[in-house]
């Protein structure tokens, strides 16, 4: 028997992100079953699990791309109220454009591949209402610089860039408006090991310097171990275990988590 945890007593702030009892069915497939997750301000929540565990579906719900059959989603921000799944399409788009950033595994989902890299970032600022060309250019350059993108390639379209550089453009786009929440869906999968290290380092630096709350989905346990403060383990649409990252990796409680951790090279 393991001890159950108490509610937080020292950290008085409320969770920034709270997903409660979310379920989603696609035909006969139960993609998510009664899933709850939370992340405190500045915290990095890692979500791991095998393919089909529901982790990417959950992340897309946090980006309001999907609506569950049941459940609620709140962000503890001054101007954001109620269950975000109840928002209409326009309100969702504005919220995602201004408060939530996302980096997809596949850059084609997040970028216009034939537009310039700076234009891709500026587009995010345009959606949020910025109209001055000089400001757009300056803010896009700042975001790309923070993502450690080589500024001499500002005008190169992502189609002409390497995978690592495309991820940096996505990251710059995601952080251009200082989002409260940054969602990362397998952000380093498919990259060379050396490029992966650079992207991870950039993410860690952004998290530490800007205290952005992050949710990162990956099947690469090394990536999760490097970035996450807490880890949630999913299997077949359900949460099997949640804990501090070092506890999940050193003392996994659930049979599936043990299997997952022991399978790590």
């Amino acid at each position: 028997m393991t001890l159950t945890l108490d509610a937080p007593r020292i950290v008085q702030t409320r969770a920034l992100l709270q997903v409660s009892n979310v379920s989603k069915t696609y035909g006969p497939v139960k993609a998510l079953q009664n899933v709850s997750a939370h992340a405190y301000p500045g915290e990095v929540l890692g979500i791991v699990g095998e393919s089909g565990s529901g982790k990417s579906t959950l992340l897309r719900m946090m980006n309001l791309e999907e609506t569950p059959d049941q459940g609620s989603y709140t962000l503890d921000l001054p101007d954001v109220q109620g269950n975000l799944f109840d928002l209409d399409r326009f309100a969702r788009r504005m919220l995602c454009a201004t408060r939530i950033g996302i980096v997809y595994q596949n850059p084609h989902l997040g970028l216009l591949m034939k537009h310039s890299s700076s234009g891709n970032v500026a587009e995010r600022l345009l959606v949020a209402g910025e109209r001055s060309f000089a400001v757009l250019r300056q803010k896009a350059t700042e975001a790309l610089d923070a993502s450690e993108f080589p500024l001499e390639r500002l005008d190169a379209p992502p189609a002409e860039l390497s995978g690592g550089m495309q991820q940096r453009v996505q990251l710059a786009k995601a952080i251009a408006l200082e989002p409260a929440l940054l969602l990362l869906d397998e952000p380093t999968t498919g990259l060379d090991v050396s490029v992966q290290a650079l992207v991870l380092d950039t993410l860690k630096r952004l998290q530490q310097d800007r205290k952005i709350t992050m949710v990162i989905v990956s099947h690469d346990l090394g990536v999760i171990r490097t970035l996450a403060d807490r880890v949630m383990v999913m299997r077949r649409g359900e949460v099997v275990e949640t804990g501090l990252a070092d506890q999940i990796f050193q003392d996994p409680q659930h049979a599936y988590t043990q299997q997952l951790v022991h399978a790590k090279l």
Binding site: L5, P8, I10, V11, E43, R230
Partner: peptide, 17 residues
């Protein structure tokens, strides 16, 4: 912040400590 049982404390409190 006062006495706290590390065996049962919430993850977020442990991370803070």
């Amino acid at each position: 912040h006062g006495a706290i049982d590390l065996a049962r404390a919430a993850d977020v409190d442990i991370a803070h400590l």
